[in-house]
Design a protein around this nucleic acid. Structure first.
Lengths: 282, 282
DNA sequence: GAGATCGATACCCGTGCGGTATCGCTGCCC
DNA sequence: GGGCAGCGATACCGCACGGGTATCGATCTC
């Protein structure tokens, strides 16, 4: 199976529309139809159920979509990391560390300072991204190492080391009645009728159904909370960066959040190893 | 980057010889040379240092070899799993479980029995393989789930659940003086001059340098121990399948061995999930 | 210095990918 | 209900690119 075929199939599977997929791929529709047919013939498996009006994934197509995305990420990672390795020969290789925008900057800055003091330290570029994007960046080679937050982020497929664990707080508008409490329980805050939990986009960019406003990043979220339109559970360390119009109350029975440093299992370069080692010593 | 290019490069990188690599790939040498040159041009990176007599990997080439293998495995896995999913529609999908030949069969048979009793159980094919091969089978889709033994097997890149932990014993020929002891220390057995530890092949099929006989599987190993030519450290559960001409003595300070069930992180099918759940309940 | 070995180059051929034009089917709407 | 619009499939064409053979240039060996 060639990566071209995989790219074509993934495009069609995501669009569920040959014309749009072809436009996205920058080719015409007929060669795309042919390529998919040929892929199906070679696999001996129907991937799509097409009527002349609609396209739908079969069970096998669903599997190939999932596995194919992972495979394409791996190929892309091989490409990117090779290019980086080649540049490394003629200059500073550097590392790219990715973490969630809005996550605790205290741990990160401590880590960067400590690592910079190491004798064989290389430059570390920090990349901030929205929730759920880090895993992708790590898998396709755009980043070398990530700070993830369990249980929110999935660490599946990566090597990890635990760095620290913290409890969580509920973030509320400054004047809210609950802000007088010294602590609350999950049950007190999960179903506040006027302050629903926001909805984050899934890995496919779509929002799950349900109540609560849609948010894309932490700035939006904090704004919504300040406006009295939402509330949120967040790691305790977020208190350091709370605005004046927000308040935080510890949630005793909320799950603990563990910050881990994660890296792709196959590419343990010396630079990554050094950074990880520094991190575990913090 | 196309998988064809990756396959070509990996072949050359492994053979370090264009002629042999071309023969292995079933093509002539000139197109192979051209393909590699083109790959290097597109990546903007030298992958191989060639003189007219020898070929060697550059730093970037080493990276591409490592990453490229992983990517090719992922592509192959996508292929295989899609084919399997298509067959599943017209019959029993089934699971393939891989474990080391010679590993404890007690845990495995308990697991298989317990899982078979589940209402939605599918057939499980058991695949036995040599040490170090399981990870490969799991990564390239020939197996769905594996029983691995930490710290011997690397679980990097997989999701795992711990099943059980056991101590280790040293396996010796039946008449050996140490067999009278009730227990020994690592120091007592690591450097027995007449009974060296055997050497296992690495992932590349090559044997590391050093003393000790080369072995490929457990039968060979046991045979060598019985002949008084080797000794070995092994999990306690191996005692159940020891031959009469062998004896085992507990090694108090040997590292504990943990048996884990492992599966590829992206392909958590319902069948795999069921098997894992059954395993954790044992 | 002759020969062997190995990678690179030159050149040719055929497959296969991509393009345009068009068909056949289906749902929609006046 | 018939015309129309939208979609995927098919037919056909041209060319780029992958693969083959022949050969060269360099280097190691005896």
């Amino acid at each position: 199976m060639e990566t071209r075929e995989l790219r074509y199939f993934v495009a069609v599977a995501e669009e569920l529309h040959f014309g749009r997929a072809a436009r996205r791929l920058g080719i015409a529709q007929p060669p795309l139809s042919r390529a998919i047919r040929q892929l199906e013939r070679r696999l001996g498996a129907a991937l799509l159920e097409r009527t002349s009006r609609t396209v739908n994934l079969t069970e096998a197509g669903l599997v190939l979509l999932r596995e194919g995305r992972a495979a394409l990420d791996a190929v892309e990672a091989a490409d990117r990391r090779t290019r980086r390795a080649a540049l490394a020969a003629t200059g500073d290789p550097g590392l790219v560390l990715v973490t969630k925008a809005g996550a605790s900057s205290e741990l990160l800055s401590k880590l960067l300072d400590a690592y910079a003091a190491e004798p064989e330290a290389v430059t570390v570029d920090v990349l901030l991204c929205g929730p759920g994007e880090q895993e992708r960046l790590l898998r396709d080679g755009r980043a070398d190492v990530a700070l993830l937050h369990r249980p929110f982020d999935t660490t599946a497929g990566f090597d990890t080391e635990e760095l620290c664990t913290e409890s969580q707080v509920v973030v509320l508008p400054a004047g809210h009645p609950l802000t007088g409490r010294t602590h609350v329980q999950m049950a007190d805050v999960t179903d506040l009728p006027d302050l629903p939990m926001p909805r984050w986009p899934g890995p496919d960019g779509m929002y799950p159904d349900g109540p609560g406003p849609q948010v894309r990043d932490h700035t939006q979220l904090l704004q919504l909370i300040a406006l009295g339109r939402a509330s949120a559970i967040a790691p305790e360390s977020c208190r350091a960066q709370l605005r004046d119009d927000l308040a935080a109350v510890p949630v005793l029975d909320a799950p603990m959040v563990t910050t881990v440093i994660a890296w792709p299992p196959h590419s343990r370069s010396r630079a990554v190893a050094g950074l990880v080692q520094t991190a575990t010593r913090l």
